[in-house]
Design a protein around this nucleic acid. Structure first.
Lengths: 240, 240
DNA sequence: TAAATAGTGTCTATGAGACATTATGTA
DNA sequence: TACATAATGTCTCATAGACACTATTTA
């Protein structure tokens, strides 16, 4: 026990060079029938003037008992800072960690990337430019042309890969529609994310399975349309 | 451009507290019909004397042009150091990043976890205790009882979840059999990983599909057995 | 020839994809 | 009533699970 105390004080890991660690966020939503990602314009070098993923440094404490914030908390904090949204109302998941030497030309930065799914009815409330930075939603199909800063293009692609893979065996699609939605609306979302239209009949079949499984329930009301209105559903709130 | 230079020198991120970053490895193989993980006994506090995942600090450079090693390289280096195996002959994939404040009682440590699959014919060559540390292979079903150091139990569970999920839609099972193998042998591996025996007929059906897809090919020779010997196959070497 | 294991075949249920058809609400 | 879209139904094909059966090699 004395032994342990002695060790704790003599521990020298902090004498070795340490990297900076950031969280970067791939914040996605659907606007105008396009899958869009929130980007911020860099106001400083490097990559000044280019678009980048929102993100920031993980807060680290220097004492053993006050070590700073958890990674997930850092991601939630950044989400809140960049969008103004309540993190509890947004799906957030760790994506991958990018740490190539030289990915930041200044110094060694390792970034833990997260992706977030924002329901489109909340997207308009995202205060574009939270802390006076320019920010906007971009069609994910267009970001390659923008020439993103750092390795952020790669991070966006990894996020798309992930959500496309998880789309049909998880509930994540429900975080890309408003609180209530119709079958055709959800079908369109799937089509947009996967980049190809879904068959109405086949999609409905899957949808009905989800209903039977209890992941969904019918909601009161109907959509105001110019033809036959569709029934309205909602997601039964408990996360997978 | 002058502007940029000025910024690079004045950049102050290094004045903020930074975490230590490590890579930890969940190195798996199959020994005696059990899925086993390589653990090392800690020789220092904290958790002195307890079993832990092998791992180590990511090497970080302090100059912008010499920033240290990539994360994947750090994982490969640790793998080589801990097992003596050629990393090019081992399947290695980033798993998840664990960074809860307090997970290391000494100071803030964020660890990027990787998992590795070692072919069982290579496992005996793993020099248990590479750098004079005690090391051994443990049945994954038993590690919970050992009381692993840090949050390593959680990391192992995440690795198992990952490989179980990827088992039937990727080629990873081929990294848990010797270079040549029979259908029953591969079937046993699947059964061991998933924790339940596979049906011989059904498994063979899947196997034949992989053959048709060109992921496998028949190899010369047969197994020496006490009854009817099975045909021998090998994996067509190109990674998914 | 018996034992053991490799290897084959069959029946059923499930889900995906393609596509035709019917139903229902609005203008 | 016409139009638009929601909703249903059908056919085919691929795959998984359960399980019965045949074939082949060794001792």
């Amino acid at each position: 026990m004395n032994d342990e105390k002695a060790f704790l004080t003599s521990y020298r890991a902090k004498d070795y060079p340490r990297p900076s660690v950031t969280v970067d966020l791939v914040i996605l939503t659907i606007v105008d029938a396009q899958l869009r990602v929130l980007l911020v314009k860099r106001r400083e070098h490097p990559f000044k003037g280019q678009w980048a993923l929102p993100g920031g440094f993980v807060r680290v404490g220097e004492s053993p008992i006050e070590q700073g914030e958890d990674l997930d908390d850092a991601a939630r904090r950044e989400l809140k800072e960049e969008t103004g949204l309540d993190p509890s109302r947004v799906y957030l998941e760790q994506l991958y960690t990018f740490g190539r030497a030289g990915r930041d030309p200044r110094l060694r930065v390792i970034t833990v990337a997260y992706y977030a799914l924002v329901r489109p009815d909340l997207a308009p409330f995202v205060k574009a430019g939270g802390d006076a930075t320019e920010a906007d939603w971009f069609d994910v199909a267009q970001v390659a042309r923008l020439g993103l800063a750092f390795d952020h293009q790669e991070i966006v692609e990894k996020a798309l890969e992930r959500i496309r893979g998880k789309l049909d065996y998880t509930n994540i699609a429900f975080d890309l529609v408003p609180a209530t939605f119709t079958i055709p609306e959800l079908r369109h979302v799937h089509g947009i994310v996967l980049g190809k239209p879904m068959d109405p009949g086949n999609f409905r079949r899957s949808f009905n399975r989800w209903l039977e499984e209890g992941r969904l329930e019918q909601a009161p009301g109907k959509r105001i349309t110019t033809s036959k209105p569709a029934a309205v559903y909602r997601f039964k709130r408990e996360r997978d």
